[in-house]
Design a protein around this nucleic acid. Sequence first.
RNA 1: GCGACCGUAGCUCAGUUGGUUAGAGCGCUGGUUUGUGGUACCAGAGGUCGGGGGUUCAAGACCCCUCGGUCGCCCCA
Length: 411
Amino acid sequence: MAKIQTPQAVRGTQDMFGETEERFVHVVATFERVRKLYGFKGLQLPVIEPTAVFSRSLGEATDVVSKEMYTFEDRGGDSITLRPEFTAGIARAYLTNGWQQFAPMKLSVHGPLFRYERPQKGRYRQFHQIDAEIIGAGEPAADVELLVMADQLLKELGINDGVTLQLNTLGDTPSRDAWRAALVGYFNDHKGALSEDSLSRLEKNPLRILDSKDPKDRPIAAAAPVIDDYLSGEAQDFFGAVTAGLDAAGVAWTRNAALVRGLDYYRHTAFEFVTDRLGAQGTVLGGGRYDGLIENLGGPATPAVGWAAGIERLAMLLEHGSQDKFDAVIVVENDDRLSDAIRLARKLRAAHFATEIVATGSPRKRFDKAAKLPAHTLISLSVADGAPSMRIRGEGSEIAARVEAFIVGAN
RNA sequence: GCGACCGUAGCUCAGUUGGUUAGAGCGCUGGUUUGUGGUACCAGAGGUCGGGGGUUCAAGACCCCUCGGUCGCCCCA
């Protein structure tokens, strides 16, 4: 008989288990707790959307739309896309459900996203993000609230060490356009010294030359025109209000004038929490104000601001995975005690003690097997001199004391 | 899309310039030992060396293709 090839996971996907899974869940649980502290409502959204949701918001011709989305035709002939981001889908839901009536809305989501990219450290084809948005709020206080929440989240996860908040403003539309024109002019004057990659960026996405990694581009980028010289008074006031709010909240930040967004719908605030501990994928959490997006989707002009963070990346930064521990492990050292063990386990679990039974394999080795499980209490059931015997070994912790007291009380 | 490195038991890996029946540790199963105990010893199961093709008397080692993994570039909504 021919041996069949064992199926493999799709490239760029992962099966999370054990410590990896526990870290992942911990990030989500922490996010859920923190976002409630700030009054953000939860949202559950479809994973698939009409392709137009993304092609219209991101721009038909961009690489991300043309090359990096999972797009397919369904059986009815409609073009469907696995969501590559949350923001566009949230904006779509806002419009289709008429949520203007609730504006301003503070919303949070988390779940899987899909991008057809080459996997590398902290980058997968199916990845997961937590996401927070405020839609319908045009004032800088909304930006501040979102940033303060992000800062608290990172602190509660214990990964704020070595993470810095980089902040920039892209200005309002006139400011941004003027700056962009000045940059294109400047880079055109220095064409000869730019790297090959940056020459093509000059055609497609000139702002990106500013954060080029190529050492050839660095000095040119460093001397490029800065947004500050092109900011309108209104845009300056807006950015000033954001930084003042952060200072008032005690959130540390640094200005990064090279922090840009490629898409035109971004306005004003752009930010990234960046770490040096994840190789090339340094951004841990990023976002900004996207006042132009909802209009791109055919809706009314609606100011909005938000951020998203990769759960896998956050999980990788966690100090140590808190391994789940059993409250009690019951060892059946003599098969005659199996029923007793089942009865006791049932009682413990009903009292909300996480309990495991070890009753398989060589009876002589079961104790060793059980002792290797992470547990607060180890309960051994055996038969000594013809009489049933139970021994409890606690680790001396408060939980162990409660388990022991419960067992004594229950018998 | 481009580049570098990698792919040998369930896991972590060794395998000498190609040369008999492919190894270790951990884990697993069984036995012995110990007995308020996470010990030690013995034995066993488990591998068509990611897959396909080629070179050779001979390939886990060399060549080509392919599929995965890792890291970087590009991109980054």
